[in-house]
Design a protein around this nucleic acid. Structure first.
Lengths: 133, 133
DNA sequence: GGCGTTGGTTTACACATGTAATTTATATCA
DNA sequence: TGATATAAATTACATGTGTAAACCAACGCC
């Protein structure tokens, strides 16, 4: 059973992922620069996130402090995994090819990618040599 | 102004992208194996796609033939681009890193990726040598 | 102690989406 | 020509989402 949150809700999560716990006041302030939302809107989103179990609230005097339950990693994995599966049959290579075709890969990216891949291959051979525990 | 279609609608698009034009009958048949939808459901989706301008219909006797207006490429670009921007700040490298961390990259994928990158670098140097027209 | 402020809770409301059933128009067959 | 089968168009309806406003409770100030 995966927690599923909406686009707007994810914006709120983002500020909590950045640093938490935060009061609703903090959250509203943090969002001020990003979204043109009324306070009431943020409060609604916080409540929806609460009932979905994506965040938790602990009382702190007369207000609440909110912190994420759904981790950013889990969210990223959900989102990107589902897109990868739906649109590219689960294959990463076609996805990267797509980005290259669409000018999303700079020369610098290519270099960074090569480095990443070399790293991954290295890690892999490491783990192969490692004795089982 | 980008045409935005829903998940269910994209399933219908998929069969049209595979090959078109198709009658609603064809589409319903093609979907039979994939989705457990009533005919009426498919027809609703076709109508919604029509009003969104994602497909066009041409009369063929007493029925219609449907074909995509929104291209699969444009759709892929929208979807993957928006995910890339929202979740990875537009950076492909972190996205690939994410997939590797999440076990979506096999050893074979790494090899294929290296090949793809080499190809891209080659293309790039080609285009640099090329004289301007 | 009444009152405004501030934070939280409840209600609102339009539009999108998933998933159809119902109705209408039309072609065909008996 | 009237009944039947089809295809398309219209209507339906619950749930999710974006976006709030309204209401309520407690705390501090005059």
């Amino acid at each position: 059973m995966t927690i599923s949150i909406s686009e707007a809700e994810s914006v709120v999560m983002r500020v909590l992922w950045q640093n938490s716990p935060k009061s609703s006041e903090d959250i509203i302030a943090a969002l001020k620069s990003v979204q043109d939302w009324q306070e009431a809107t943020v409060k609604t989103l916080l409540n929806r996130l609460l009932s979905k179990g994506a965040i938790a609230a602990e009382r702190d005097g007369r207000k609440f402090l909110y912190r994420p339950i759904l981790s950013q990693d889990a969210y990223l994995a959900q989102q990107s995994g589902s897109l990868l599966d739906r649109l590219f049959g689960g294959q990463v290579v076609p996805l990267v090819a797509h980005f290259s075709k669409n000018q999303r890969l700079s020369a610098g990216d290519l270099i960074a990618l090569k480095k990443l891949i070399a790293q991954l291959e290295h890690d892999e051979s490491e783990s192969n040599h490692e004795s089982k525990r």
